[in-house]
Simulated scan of single mutants.
Amino acid sequence: MEHNTKIYIAGHRGMVGSAIWRKLEAEGFTNITGKTSKELDLRDQQAVKQFFAEEKPEVVIDAAARVGGIMANNDYPYQFLMENLQIQNNLIDESHKAGVEKFIFLGSSCIYPKLAPQPLKEEYLLSGRLEETNQWYAIAKIAGVKACEAIRKQHGKDFVSLMPTNLYGTHDNFDLRTSHVLPAMIRKFHDAAKNGNTPVELWGSGNPMREFLFVDDLADAVYFALNNKLPENLYNIGTGKDITIKELAVLIQEIVGHDGEIIWDSSKPDGTPRKLMDVDKMKNAGWKATTSLKEGIKRTYGWFLQNSENYKQVKL
């Protein structure tokens, strides 16, 4: 791509979108655009249509979504299904109608069946039942993957879907009501350490295994996809390595400096037993993650400390 190519990042203020923006700027791109949710409601079809008519982006990166952890998904299933469908459908359809040739759709590893073989291969999509606690979000994202695949098949456009594993990093959501497991742990251990190393209570048994990807690595994968015409429509983005939730807790506890007890509430749900991505397809295409989990958590906690008075709050 030329450095003056007009690139629209939907969700540019979020953790993922802002990381992609930083990456593109660092690589010398000068014509990047984004709109806040107040400036452009992506759920509003007419507003999105007007935006495309006025701005005429050449490349679109869809990093916009309603996201949250187990509790948020469980408490607000309709919003997680409908709003994600509205956002992505408007972006995909208007990109197609406006002649956008390069579209990158970002989703999540939760699109794969709960009990699919490990590690998760792209071919396992729609081969079994989804995890109940986040099926609403997953169904929306699956629809987005299939919409991009359909445009690619019918119209030959370079619409590609990248499915990252569990993401974390700077600009994450540390609100305990709506955050994902890793930033929630950082917040809990930090608060407990400040309060005299009080015990930290965590959900579940701690036995499930999870893979985590530093958000700057995802931004690097998006940059790679922008500069290469990938031959297939769906790619997993991850490290190919996982860790138990208990091991993650101990690692975060050490980095934060908390010396208290960890209490596991086994009455709370564990979610999927294991979610490890098979990343061979993207690796064979020429890209792999480079940030270790320990280094990524250190960088995330450093950012958290600098912004600890301004926790990102999500209004539902």
Rank of each mutant, 00 (worst) to 15 (best):
V16R: 01
A53F: 09
V48I: 11
D278C: 11
R274F: 00
P269W: 10
S266Q: 14
L202E: 09
G271W: 08
V16P: 01
K153N: 11
H180R: 11
N307R: 13
K146N: 13
A63M: 05
L167Y: 05
F52K: 09
G206C: 07
F174T: 08
A221H: 02
I245D: 04
T36W: 06
R210L: 10
P208E: 11
Q154E: 15
S37W: 10
S179Q: 07
M1Y: 04
F174M: 02
F29G: 05
N236C: 05
E247A: 14
G14R: 08
P183S: 09
Q50Y: 02
W303P: 02
T133M: 13
K49W: 03
I252E: 06
K102A: 01
L115V: 00
Q313A: 08
L202W: 03
A116N: 07
Y235H: 11
R299S: 08
S161A: 10
Q135E: 15
S267L: 12
K121R: 12
A150H: 07
G128S: 13
V60C: 07
V100M: 01
E201H: 07
K188Q: 14
K294W: 00
L276M: 12
I252T: 14
G169Y: 10
L230Q: 02
G260H: 03
P113Y: 09
G34Y: 11
Q253I: 05
I70K: 05
W303M: 02
V16E: 03
W136L: 03
G206M: 10
Y235Q: 10
E295Y: 00
Q50T: 14
E2W: 00
D278H: 06
W287R: 12
A47Y: 06
L202T: 11
K6F: 01
S18R: 13
I252K: 04
H12A: 15
F189H: 08
E232C: 00
G296V: 07
K246F: 08
T170M: 06
L251M: 14
G296I: 08
I245Q: 14
K97G: 05
G156R: 10
N307H: 15
K312E: 12
A72V: 07
Y8T: 06
M277V: 09
I7F: 06
E54G: 00
H12M: 12
V16S: 04
D278Y: 02
Q135F: 10
I139A: 11
A147R: 14
E247K: 12
I111H: 01
Q135N: 11
E232T: 12
R177E: 15
K298D: 10
K294Q: 13
S179D: 04
